[in-house]
Amino acid sequence: MKLGRLNHIGVATPSIADSIAHYRDVMGATHITEPFDLPEQGVKVCFVDTPTESGMNGTQIELIEPYDENSPINGFLAKNPAGGQHHVCFEVEDIAAAREWFEGQGKRILGPTRIGAHGTPIFFLHPKDMQGILTEIMETPQGEGH
C-alpha cells in the first residue's frame, strides 16, 4: 500500500456560512465551493481550495456542518462548540487494497466503504489506531487536476 497526497483537512463548524466568511475575509481565500448536503453522511460540506505555485489545487479545507440532529458531527461540536479540526484525508490509488492492508495491520475501520464528498470511495480509521487522529482514506479522484 502506498499513501498518496494529503487531500484535505476536515474542519467541523457550527456554521458553514460563518466559516466561509472567515476563510474569505480573514484568510483571503478566493476559491470556495458552494455548500452542498450529504444527508447519507449527516453533513453539509464545502471546500476551500488552497493554491500552489503551479496553479494546481493544493490541499483543501473541508468545512463540515451537521446536516440534522442525527449528524455524527454533533458529538464533536458538543465537545468543541466553536468547531475545529475533525479529520485528515489521504488519497490512495486503490481503496479496496488500502482497506485490506489497514485491516491486515490491525487498524479499526469505522463503518463500510462509502462514497464521500469528492464522489469517490472513502473509509475512516479509528483515531486510537492512528495516533489520535481520525483519518479518512479516499480513492484518488479522477479528472480534478490533482
Rank of each mutant, 00 (worst) to 15 (best):
K128C: 06
S15D: 10
P14I: 04
H126F: 04
H87T: 10
P112V: 11
P66G: 10
F90Q: 03
N57F: 09
T50N: 10
G84Y: 05
T33N: 11
A82K: 15
E40H: 14
G116H: 06
T59Q: 05
D25K: 09
V43D: 02
K79G: 08
S54W: 00
T50H: 05
F102S: 03
D37Q: 07
Q142Y: 00
P39S: 03
G145P: 14
F123Y: 14
L63A: 07
H31E: 14
I137L: 11
Q105E: 14
H22T: 12
P127L: 06
D37L: 01
A97I: 03
E100H: 06
E40C: 00
M130R: 06
F76C: 09
L63I: 07
A82I: 07
M1L: 06
R99V: 04
V45N: 05
E136A: 07
P35G: 05
E40T: 10
H146F: 13
W101L: 01
M138Q: 14
V92C: 10
V45K: 01
Y23M: 10
I95A: 03
M27F: 15
D37E: 15
E53T: 12
P141S: 02
F102D: 03
L134H: 04
T59C: 14
M130A: 06
N74I: 12
D129L: 02
C89W: 01
Q105M: 15
Q41S: 07
